[in-house]
Structure formats: structure tokens, C-alpha cells
């Protein structure tokens, strides 16, 4: 899941000195929605934990054997989650709308600009993701190729996390209005099951977040700033033969 786009093993060695240019990687809309999503999801998880506190019953385990209880009591104390149910609900049910709107806006934007092409996985993505994983864990030396802007593991993960976002919204509404939206609640296996799904999705979000931070840190400052500025510096030769950078391809796909 390496995020840097500097090297291209396919390009033949060039005698001409390479020059640097900055290539558009993340469009303005994607950047804003990405960063707006960050505080929103933090608020949703934090207020959600204040709600969960009032009925903290989930654990990992098999049958009667309990491996890990969500969560140790010190966790609630440290994050000020005790006795905050009313406030948790108030934050959760208000900010849920902003989280939902931002998510819908992102999907529409990605679709309209054609950026979804950079993100969708295909049949080979699972295998490709394994290659990326082995490389990132330093088990394998060769770096798997990117397909456009992202490698297969990124495609799979980013698509999955967007799917999880919508699963969070749907399971949330299934719990919020189980009578008025009884069909939705039924699809998710009933009220109790929808609640488990909602909680599991949250845990998955947190795990994604941890890996995401780690990978961004690994990929370096230039990659990070591309999510702020939109542009990433890449090396090209003056003859212009290496003019099919991933972002450029996506621009053409989208604009042309």
C-alpha cells in the first residue's frame, strides 16, 4: 500500500537530465471532502462510544470464552465517555446528517469527475493486494505495479472504506428508525443485528484509520501534501515521452 508515485520501472533510461513538475493528483472537491470527513467521523465515533457506553455488551470470543471485551473501563474514563448518553445521542443524531451529506457528495463528485476509475478494484485486485501487502511487510522485494494513481491494495481498501461508510449510514438509520424503516432493519437482520453491524463497521473504520496513518507516514511529506495542495511532484524528462503520469491519465479520462 505504498503511496509514492516517484518511480516507474517501465521507463527506459534517458540520457537527458530529468526535470521535476507537479502533477494534479487529488482534485479540489476530493481534498475538501476528504478533510471535512475527518473531523466528522471523529465526532461520530466519539459520540457513538458515549452511546455504546450505556449498553457496553460486545466482546470478541467463541461461545462462553471471552477474549476481549469492548472496552476496558479505563478506556471510558480516559475519553470522558461515562454518563454522557444524552449528549452522545445529541451529537450523533445531528452530525450524522453532515456525515451522510458529505459521503453522498463525495460519491456523486467521484462519479461525475470520473475519479471513480482510479479507485475501483477488479478481479485481480485481491491478488494484487496480497503482493502489495507482502512488499510492504518486506517479505517480498519487488514493488507491485500501480494501475493508474493507486496500487491494487489502495484500490481495494479505499473502495471498501467507502462501502463501509455507507454501511455505517444504513445500519445507523436501521437502528435509529427500526419501525419507520422496518424494511431496512429487516435487510440487516433485525435491530440487534443492525446494531452489531454498526459497531463492527466502526471498529473497521478505526483499523483503517490506523493503517492509513501509518502508510501516509511511510509514503512521506510530498505524498501527504498532495492531499492538501492537490499536486504531487514527479520527475519527467524534457522530451515529454513520460507524459502519461497517473493523474494525467485520469484527467484525460475525466475531461476528455
Amino acid at each position: 500500500m505504498s503511496l509514492d508515485t516517484n518511480s516507474d520501472p517501465q521507463s527506459p533510461p534517458q540520457p537527458i537530465e530529468p526535470t521535476k513538475i507537479a502533477v494534479l493528483k487529488h482534485r479540489r472537491g476530493s481534498r475538501w471532502m476528504h478533510w471535512i470527513n475527518f473531523p466528522l467521523i471523529v465526532i461520530m465515533i466519539w459520540s457513538g462510544l458515549r452511546i455504546y457506553w450505556a449498553n457496553r455488551v460486545y466482546a470478541f470470543g467463541i461461545l462462553s470464552w471471552e477474549w476481549f471485551m469492548f472496552f476496558p473501563e479505563s478506556f471510558y474514563t480516559a475519553l470522558d465517555l461515562n454518563q454522557r448518553l444524552a449528549r452522545g445521542i445529541a451529537f450523533h443524531f445531528t452530525f450524522a446528517w453532515l456525515f451522510t451529506l458529505n459521503g453522498i457528495a463525495f460519491v456523486i463528485y467521484t462519479w461525475r469527475t470520473g475519479e471513480w476509475r482510479e479507485m475501483v478494484p477488479n478481479r485481480k485486485s485481491l491478488r494484487g493486494s496480497l503482493d502489495v501487502l507482502l512488499h510492504d511487510l518486506r517479505i517480498r522485494k519487488t514493488e507491485p505495479p500501480k494501475r493508474g494513481r493507486y496500487n491494487e491494495a489502495q484500490r481495494l481498501t479505499y473502495s471498501l472504506v467507502i462501502f463501509l461508510g455507507f454501511l455505517a449510514i444504513l445500519s445507523g438509520f436501521a437502528i435509529f428508525k427500526p419501525t419507520q424503516l422496518s424494511i431496512l432493519t429487516w435487510i440487516l437482520g433485525g435491530y440487534t443485528s443492525a446494531r452489531v453491524i454498526h459497531f463492527a463497521v466502526t471498529i473497521a473504520f478505526v483499523l483503517f484509520f490506523l493503517v492509513h496513518i501509518l502508510q501516509v507516514a511511510r509514503a512521506g511529506w510530498r505524498n501527504f501534501t498532495s492531499m492538501v495542495t492537490g499536486y504531487e511532484v514527479t520527475e519527467t524528462d524534457t522530451s515529454g515521452s513520460n507524459r502519461t503520469s497517473p493523474a494525467r491519465q485520469s484527467m484525460e479520462a475525466a475531461d476528455g
Binding site: K20, I21, A22, V23, L24, R27, R28, W35, T225, V228, T229, G230, Y231, V233, A247, R248, M251, D255
Partner: peptide, 27 residues
């Protein structure tokens, strides 16, 4: 206002300053 697909390094540096400022203000 569409963003240019490529920027020269000079334009990129200006862009970076401006974006980091905007980002900071937004935060």
C-alpha cells in the same frame, strides 16, 4: 475554476504555500 493538470515547480511552490495557509485556516 478547473485546476491545471500540471504545474511548474515555481507555481507549485506558490500553490503549496497558499494551500497550507488555506488548510490551516480551515482547520
Amino acid at each position: 475554476m478547473a485546476e491545471k493538470p500540471e504545474l511548474s515547480m515555481a507555481a507549485y511552490r506558490q500553490r503549496t504555500r497558499r494551500s497550507l495557509l488555506t488548510g490551516g485556516l480551515a482547520a
